[in-house]
Simulated scan of single mutants.
Amino acid sequence: MPPETRFDSARIEAARGVIDPVFLDTPLYPCDALGRALGCRVSVKLETANPVRSFKGRGTELVVNGLAGRAAVCASAGNLGQALAWSAQGRDVAVTVVASRSAPAAKLDRIRALGAELELVDGDFDLARERAVAIAGERGIRLVEDSLDIETCEGAATIGLELTDTTPSFDTVLIALGGGALATGVGHVLKERAPAVDVLCVQPAGAPAMTLSWRARRVVTTESTSTIADGVAGRLPLAEVLADLLVVADDALLVREESIIAGMRLLLEHAGLVVEPSAALGVAAILEDPERFAGRHVVVLVCGSNVDLPAYHRWLGNA
């Protein structure tokens, strides 16, 4: 009997008919220059070539499709809030986004520009989530929880369909790991349609909660986070998402901050891509263990490019 999972393959297939095509069929291409720098064959799956500059729009399209004019609230490090606000436009759905006051200003500005009500809290993402839960109860509106709401995961899973539609010759897929929607969604499809492909999840060492949980096979929380990769900086993994991750992940890796910055620099220099730190986690993993990937064909998911430019220039030394 196959392991239990929250995913339904028929729903994932059907999702492609619901998601705005602007988020679908993102570029997948070999990047020889990046591969030469890293010592392996590298293909890039570019999830930033859309109006919200991240993969999150795939999931929010499914969420909003089921709201039928109802209001919604979410906590966000920035990308989910933008995506939910974008999907709600023109669909009679009022969106409130709760974010940390320390979130990148560029992300917060875009959330406002997309018409969402933005509430800021003093604290991290998990404190923003607590406030979003309270708002949902106070107003009687839909709480959208990234990774817990299966729509956010199955939207991300359509990336896996696109990867396997290419009749893959790749050996490994490197996936940024935060709340888990991207890793569990893509991982589910790969294990079903291309089980020989290694699904490797990557998290910053400064925000290791989900990786520690995967290794312990139980929820492990942390007191704090310290990473520039704000999009994956959670302290409190969700048991339901961890259960899905345990089914599909072949390994979970932790990388240093200096490797993340080096990965961002390589993506700029060899692929012409300006990315946020979370999107460089896969490249960082190769940098830290090149022998593991030597001679292999690796797909790197570039998951977001909503970067704060002043911070980006500081990290890369005015690149």
Rank of each mutant, 00 (worst) to 15 (best):
M1T: 13
P3V: 01
T5R: 02
T5L: 02
I12R: 05
A15H: 12
D25S: 14
D25K: 15
T26S: 15
L28F: 12
Y29W: 13
P30F: 11
P30A: 05
G35S: 11
R36D: 15
R41P: 11
S43M: 12
S43E: 15
V44H: 13
V44Y: 14
V44D: 14
K45C: 07
N50W: 09
R53S: 15
S54H: 10
F55Q: 14
K56I: 09
G57M: 12
V64A: 13
N65C: 07
G66N: 14
G69P: 09
A72R: 12
N79A: 11
A83D: 15
A83L: 04
W86P: 09
Q89I: 01
V93T: 15
V93K: 13
A94L: 01
S100R: 00
A106L: 02
I111D: 06
G115W: 09
G115M: 03
E117I: 02
D122Q: 09
D122H: 06
L127H: 04
L127I: 06
A128W: 03
A128E: 05
R129G: 00
A132F: 00
A136I: 04
G137T: 05
E138N: 00
I141N: 08
D149S: 04
C153F: 00
A156Q: 11
A156R: 01
T158S: 11
T158P: 08
G160A: 08
G160R: 03
S169R: 12
S169P: 00
L174H: 10
G180E: 06
K191H: 12
R193M: 07
A196Q: 12
V197H: 07
V199D: 09
Q203I: 04
A207P: 06
A207V: 02
P208I: 01
R218E: 13
V219C: 06
V220T: 11
S224H: 12
R235A: 01
R235I: 02
R235F: 04
V241T: 14
V241A: 10
L246V: 02
V247F: 04
D251S: 10
L253Q: 08
V255P: 05
E258C: 14
M264F: 06
R265L: 06
L266S: 09
L268W: 10
L268Q: 10
G272M: 00
E276H: 12
P277A: 02
A280Q: 09
A280T: 09
G282M: 04
A284Q: 06
I286C: 13
R292L: 09
G295F: 02
L301C: 07
L301G: 05
G304E: 07
Y312K: 07
Y312L: 15
H313S: 13
R314G: 02
